[in-house]
């Protein structure tokens, strides 16, 4: 295995991006909206395309604005379809994001005649080419580092609000913490995260990182702060294992079949595969230790002493 500076930057960027996605992903999961991450990561496509067609550039700001608009539109449209069409939320989301994604593909096809913005890159990402920035810190590493920092700060700042809005939205709202507004804020953060991650790792890895680390972490702990830390850990580990796997696995497997000329495969895709593998490990650990949701620690009945002696 030939490890170069490029590999180091791929791993660093991957770790930062994956961890940045895992945080909003964990709260989407707790809101039972994991698929909204999937929906957003597809539905931002028309937002990106329209922003690109309007400004004729791939500057970060217009892209982010387009994506956030599309992300919020997804959340709002999904709610409307659910209410007006009286279908369950998963079906409503499916209708909305597929339609928006298809619209995005059409727009990108139109745009690609003019400039380099191709659908493959959006779908699978190209972390390998994104980090090429000879002699200095790659731009994507800086962006993903900043993104992770902002997401960590937002999580710390709104930890209690995010928790109550996810656990008991009715109570949150009656206390003056409007649960709908908090959830919309989460949608905005997820949209921004998605579009910034898009450029380097593509939508498949974004979806995986929004959902899988949080899901794996939830198998191992009953505490929210541990869940977030585990999710960050799983996300980072997925990035490291993923890139190592992308570099070494094709050659190893090729040797088994007598083919020695196989190169490295997509790092982003392999990171998503690694996340799946880690989920499997977490599930096995939980199963062996007997931590299943259907079999929680048996409640012990209390002897009653409701102390009202005043």
């Amino acid at each position: 295995m030939n490890w170069s500076e490029l590999d180091t930057w791929i791993v660093i960027t991957g770790v930062l991006i994956c961890a940045a996605c895992a945080l909003p992903g964990a709260f989407l999961m707790l809101n039972r909206q994991s698929m909204l991450g999937d929906g957003i990561s597809h539905a931002v496509l028309p937002g990106l395309a329209i922003a690109f067609l309007l400004t004729n550039s791939r500057e970060v700001l217009p892209m982010v604005i387009g994506a956030v608009a599309a992300g919020v539109l997804t959340a709002v449209l999904t709610q409307m379809v659910q209410r007006l069409g009286q279908v369950e939320s998963g079906a409503a989301l499916g209708v909305v994001f597929c339609a928006l994604f298809a619209l995005g593909l059409i727009l990108i096809r139109v745009a690609s005649d003019k400039v380099d913005l191709d659908a493959d890159c959006v779908l699978y990402g190209s972390i390998e080419t994104a980090v090429v920035d000879v002699g200095r810190v790659p731009r994507v590493a800086l962006i993903s580092g900043g993104l992770l920092l902002v997401n960590i700060l937002l999580t710390l700042l709104f930890y209690k609000e995010l928790r109550i809005a996810a656990f008991d939205p009715a109570l949150a709202t009656t206390l003056g913490f409007n649960a709908d507004a908090i959830r919309l804020g989460l949608t905005v953060v997820a949209s921004v995260t998605t579009v910034l991650a898009f450029e380097s790792v593509g939508s498949i890895l974004v979806i995986a990182m929004l959902v899988v680390p949080a899901a794996a972490a939830s198998l191992l702990t009953h505490r929210l702060h541990w869940l977030l830390l585990f999710a960050l850990g799983f996300a980072a580990l997925s990035a490291v294992l993923g890139h190592i796997g992308a570099v070494t696995l094709p050659q190893t497997i090729g040797r088994w079949f007598g083919q020695s000329d196989l190169g490295a495969t997509s790092s982003a895709a392999m990171m998503a595969v690694a996340a799946g593998g880690l989920f499997l490990v977490a599930w096995l650990v939980a199963a062996i230790r007997g931590w299943t949701k259907s079999n929680p620690v048996k409640p012990i009945e209390t002897t009653m002493s409701p102390a009202s002696h005043r």
């Binding site: 707790l30 656990f167 109570l171 206390l175 003056g176 505490r223 929210l224 541990w226 869940l227």
Partner: peptide, 18 residues
């Protein structure tokens, strides 16, 4: 959702959030 990752005392403390 009573599977939510939160303890009894943390739920009660939510009453103090306002």
């Amino acid at each position: 959702d009573w599977d939510f990752p939160v303890s009894a005392v943390e739920v009660v403390a939510m009453g103090l959030y306002r």
